[in-house]
């Protein structure tokens, strides 16, 4: 039965993509769980109910802004100020989404729109480092599995933090704050080993961010750093590269 055989290969390619997406999502899960638990603890202390703090993770799904939001709720900041500050802090995802969506040109809007909602710093960078899947058959399942792994870790961790309170010992939770940075480094270095210019792009972005963070909000400084660093790529990268 040729049609049966084809169906089976299709199904197994999809399964392989899903497994690959989950496995590439594991480091993100490791980074997200402790951070999300910490968020849950802080949000509870800020006076949010378990339902509210979990709902924020479900609907907003952007770590730094949720910490900020919970903190601002705790000190009684007005809604408009919190929402504007969130926009500023999360605007960097526009730049990231534009880069990621540009890679997914061959994929329909019905996939692109839900995938775009899953763009966080961590998921964007992991997805981008694995850019080959964008061109592969069933590659969209890779990105979906990757993003859902990160998403469920974040939502589940927030809920857990809200339920259990301070479960992670202070020294350990502080040490785990380095996890996501270590992951970013672990993503960057292999690319630098292949092509030194990726390191140059990153260093220019670092320096630009360091300079602009002296007088801009963190959110805008990261946007400027990312755009300026990326702009050097116009001259450094070749057409088919990266």
């Amino acid at each position: 039965m040729p049609s049966n055989v084809m169906q089976n290969t299709h199904r197994s390619t999809r399964l392989i993509m899903i497994q690959k997406g989950i496995s590439k999502g594991l480091p993100i899960m490791m980074g997200y769980l402790p951070v999300a638990i910490t968020y849950g603890v802080l949000a509870k202390q800020a006076g949010m109910s378990l339902f509210e703090l979990t709902l924020m993770s479900v609907l907003v799904f952007a770590g730094a802004s949720q910490f900020m939001g919970a903190g601002m709720i705790a000190i009684g900041t007005g809604a408009i100020e919190i929402i504007i500050a969130t926009f500023v802090l999360n605007f960097r995802h526009f730049v990231m989404s534009l880069s990621f969506m540009n890679r997914l040109r061959g994929i329909g809007l019905n996939w692109k729109v839900p995938l775009s909602l899953g763009i966080t710093d961590e998921l964007f960078t992991v997805a981008s480092i694995h850019s080959d899947e964008a061109k592969q058959d069933k590659g969209v399942y890779f990105y979906t599995a990757l993003i859902l792994t990160g998403y469920f870790s974040w939502v589940f961790g927030s809920f857990l933090g809200g339920v259990l309170g301070d479960v992670i010992p202070e020294a350990l939770s502080q040490s785990m704050g380095v996890a996501l940075y270590a992951m970013f480094i672990g993503l960057l270095i292999p690319s630098v080993k292949k092509e030194l210019k990726f390191g140059m792009i990153a260093i220019i972005a670092m320096l630009t961010n360091a300079i602009f963070s002296q007088f801009l909000d963190v959110g805008w400084a990261i946007v400027v750093g990312t755009l300026v660093g990326g702009a050097t790529g116009i001259f450094l990268l070749k057409e088919d590269k990266a």
């Binding site: 960057l188 390191g199 972005a205 990261i222 660093g229 790529g233």
Partner: peptide, 11 residues
């Protein structure tokens, strides 16, 4: 295409 590397740096 260079944005991911720049974003990693800035992050």
């Amino acid at each position: 295409n260079a944005i991911p590397y720049a974003a990693l740096g800035a992050l």
